[in-house]
Simulated assay, not measured.
Amino acid sequence: MKNILVTGADGFIGSHLTEALVRDGYHVRAFTLYNSFNSWGWLDRCDPKILKEVDVFCGDVRDFNGVKTAMNGCDAVLHLAALIAIPFSYHSPATYIDTNITGTLNIVQAAKDLNIEKIVHTSTSEVYGSAMFVPITEEHPLQGQSPYSASKIGADQIALSFFRSFDTPIAVIRPFNTYGPRQSARAVIPTIITQLANGADRIKLGSLTPTRDFNYISDTVNGFIKIMESKNSIGEIINVGSGFEISIGDTANLIAECMGVKVKIETDSQRLRPENSEVDRLMADRSKAKLLLGWTPEYGSLEGFKKGLCETIEWFKEPINLTAYKSHIYNI
């Protein structure tokens, strides 16, 4: 496979993945969301030498004609385009169904029509809901605890149905909580870092007790590429996570320690999820990824998490990066 389409290439993970694929010698077509500003999202901040090698296609995954046109001539598709903010899914659930489910249907339908060699569909650990057991294997029951997670469950099943019905070569990657440079401030780690980097000694967060399995961006990107390149992944759902869990409160304190500051945490009621919607615990079982792909995280464990946080903090502290974030408001 030489010609790769990355949908959602303008986003956090997608932009890093696009860069990594170019460095690995692939020809990349980057599918970005059309807008009148001609913005390519985070691709605009990529190394110009790398961006020069990328074929940028502006469109919308909800449009089948655009999706099929973008996929024409590609060997593989890495499908990341989605709406992902959980709080906004409470406000506008229909947009999540349209983008995440219909968008995925467009991808797999076009893949079937064009005989694409490999589709990697992006899931999320949110589909598991609060852990019934840990570590969470791929066989864990699915629980739609937010409109977002429900839409991703639907998208996953649409993708897998094409594998089962038409032998479309589809693999599902299920990343746990990816973090790193360029992540949106709707996520907790950038929320903490940007508030502290702007001089706050009191930061506003939601619930502090839930635990998360944070996976550094380079480990997630490596998981995508290994799944794309492996024949063992076809028809499979594969967790990509660190296998290490930490609470939100402890994460905030660890970030403050890495930044050399003291911090007091205030609970902001608008940042709290509804009680039955909150995912209380996430921790990945990554044994399947190791068995099928030989994938293991470089940033797993507490020490790896500290290392990843330090690298993330250094990126956010750069003035040109920090000014792109509005730390004084709640980003839903």
Rank of each mutant, 00 (worst) to 15 (best):
7 T>S: 15
7 T>R: 08
15 S>A: 15
17 L>A: 01
23 R>K: 15
28 V>Y: 04
32 T>V: 15
33 L>I: 10
36 S>V: 02
41 G>C: 12
41 G>E: 03
43 L>D: 07
46 C>G: 11
47 D>K: 11
52 K>I: 00
53 E>A: 13
57 F>Y: 14
62 R>T: 15
65 N>D: 12
74 C>E: 06
78 L>K: 05
79 H>G: 00
87 P>S: 14
88 F>W: 08
92 S>M: 12
102 T>H: 09
102 T>V: 12
103 G>L: 12
105 L>D: 06
109 Q>F: 05
110 A>V: 02
121 H>L: 02
121 H>R: 01
125 S>D: 11
130 S>K: 15
141 P>I: 15
150 A>H: 04
152 K>V: 02
153 I>V: 01
161 S>G: 14
163 F>E: 01
163 F>D: 01
165 S>A: 10
169 P>M: 02
173 I>P: 00
176 F>N: 04
179 Y>T: 05
183 Q>M: 15
192 I>G: 01
196 L>G: 00
200 A>P: 05
210 P>D: 10
214 F>W: 15
219 D>M: 09
221 V>L: 14
222 N>F: 09
231 K>P: 04
241 G>S: 01
243 G>V: 03
253 N>T: 01
258 C>Y: 13
258 C>P: 05
266 E>R: 00
267 T>R: 02
269 S>H: 13
269 S>C: 03
272 L>E: 00
276 N>A: 10
280 D>R: 15
280 D>P: 01
281 R>C: 14
284 A>N: 02
288 K>G: 05
289 A>T: 14
295 W>L: 07
296 T>E: 15
300 G>Y: 15
301 S>A: 09
303 E>I: 10
305 F>G: 01
307 K>D: 11
316 F>N: 00
319 P>W: 04
324 A>L: 14
328 H>M: 03
